[in-house]
């Protein structure tokens, strides 16, 4: 007989703080620099106040607005945005940093919102897909996505839009390889890939045309 009672899990109770403490006292013989960095980190950790596990108030700067919410410290930025701020544009697809559907901008840099705690995002400017358009005017990347049909089901689309918006800010005239690189952390299951590249280039001012040919069968005979 087996059962799944999981009380007293030693691994879980071994916190980072305790782990570092043990390491600090037993690190006999390790290089001095390493000991120092452990000590430095310990000091930093000791200076931090412990919050939670109950919900705590936090303030997030989302799309130019300060938003106050209460969340447990373990709540991710993605969970907070979707379920506490009620901005559902960023999608939860894998919840472990492998798909990019949750991509948002943190101070202009694309990040996986599922891989950051909400409380760590405080003090940073967060941009979600809802913040890309200005007064009903799509941004150039959004506009190009619509024109090139760079979406099908659209579930991956917000993530791609943010990765590319950030790229164009950094590199206003990227080539296709740079677009691929910028989107290396975004997945699409419907297969919009070629049109995402097209749309990114179009948004940067390159004119793109469809290569597709339509041939009437009747004309062939």
């Amino acid at each position: 007989m087996m059962d799944s009672k999981s009380s007293g899990n030693d691994l879980l109770s071994l916190t980072r703080r305790n782990f570092l403490k043990t390491l600090g006292t037993t690190a006999v013989g390790t290089a001095a620099t390493q000991v120092e960095s452990v000590a430095a980190e310990l000091q930093k950790l000791n200076a931090e106040t412990i919050v939670g596990p109950a919900p705590i108030p936090i303030v997030l700067q989302v799309n130019g607005q300060a938003i106050s919410i209460e969340v447990e410290p373990r709540v991710t930025l993605l969970d907070a945005l979707r379920n506490h701020v009620h901005l559902t544009g960023a999608k939860e697809v894998c919840d472990r940093g492998t798909c990019g559907a949750c991509t948002v901008l943190l101070d202009g840099q694309p990040i996986y919102a599922c891989m950051m705690l909400a409380l760590e995002a405080q003090g940073h400017a967060i941009t979600t897909v809802e913040g890309l358009a200005h007064e009903g005017q799509l941004n150039p990347v959004q506009q190009a996505f619509v024109e090139c049909d760079a979406m099908m089901c659209g579930y991956c689309t917000p993530g791609f839009l943010l990765s590319i918006t950030a790229l164009l800010k950094r590199r206003p005239h990227p080539d296709a390889d740079e677009v691929k690189h910028a989107c290396a952390g975004n997945l699409c299951r419907c297969g919009t890939h070629p049109r995402i590249i097209q749309a990114a280039l179009k948004a940067s001012g390159v004119s793109v045309t469809s290569q597709t040919e339509v041939i009437r069968y009747a004309d062939l005979a």
Binding site: T98, H181, C183, H193, I215
Partner: peptide, 26 residues
């Protein structure tokens, strides 16, 4: 069971795709 080990094609894996649609309105 997740995308770090179940690999989907990414943008960089996709070839040039050349399409001819054979239109038969009839």
């Amino acid at each position: 069971p997740n995308f770090e080990t179940y690999k989907l094609p990414g943008l960089a894996d996709v070839p040039q795709i050349d399409i001819i649609l054979l239109d038969m309105p009839e």
